[in-house]
Design a protein around this nucleic acid. Sequence first.
DNA 1: TCCATTAATGTAATAACATAACATTGTTGC
DNA 2: GCAACAATGTTATGTTATTACATTAATGGA
Lengths: 129, 129
Amino acid sequence: MSEQNLTKNQDLVLNQLGKSKTPMSAYDLLDKLREKGLKAPLQIYRALDKLTEMGLAHRLETLNAFVACAHPNCHENELIAFGICENCNKVWEFSDDEVSKRLDLWAKERDFTPVKTSLEIRGICAKCA
Amino acid sequence: MSEQNLTKNQDLVLNQLGKSKTPMSAYDLLDKLREKGLKAPLQIYRALDKLTEMGLAHRLETLNAFVACAHPNCHENELIAFGICENCNKVWEFSDDEVSKRLDLWAKERDFTPVKTSLEIRGICAKCA
DNA sequence: TCCATTAATGTAATAACATAACATTGTTGC
DNA sequence: GCAACAATGTTATGTTATTACATTAATGGA
């Protein structure tokens, strides 16, 4: 299932991410995609850069890893938050208007111009508890 | 100005962090502390582990860097958020009860048990705008 | 005090994550 | 066809973090 305007490498990376139930590091991706001809980390990182720019993938800062966007059709630019289970590594993607509003307020009060916000809750999910 | 129950290495690292106006990476710290006898990354990382556990320092996940806690006397365990200027690298530490409440609610609804939450707003501060 | 236990330290080696630099190829539009 | 730009390929290197193992220091009984 190939995506809209993606280049070959971007498509390979996004599809691999999509198949995974848990986040993958750039090197995880490289290992999986060697058989498709990818050879160097930079090929992965370049694809990931574009994919995250386009909102089709997200970087999890606390894991140095990446996931496919859970809502690949809505390229929303709102704040995206993640819950991450430290046991099974599953990720829940969500957003909360009230949280966004409070953070916007914090920024406005200080003339701070947000560029990118990262919000990650690490913990243990219901199944793993 | 030495702290309560800190070991020699912890004290060195925390004081160095305290002197810096911007976040420092573990290797930044190592460079500064070589003259005090520290020689290996692990000495820095071990000290940072303890300091962050104690709430005296914080790790900024989006920078792979560390800051001294802005409120070193209140060992609160609440959610701490950071604003980070991408131009001057200054960091603002804050918390917001409403945000904490909303995230707690998200977790409760899913029987998710939070362990550690990371919230970082990267952007441009008023002075740098 | 002696000894056992645990915490902290020191050191070398290596693993994991990410980018710089530069050459080449592919695509687009005039 | 060709200029301009985007994407790719490749090598090397830079940056961040941990493993493994040996040693020393601090603590708390018997």
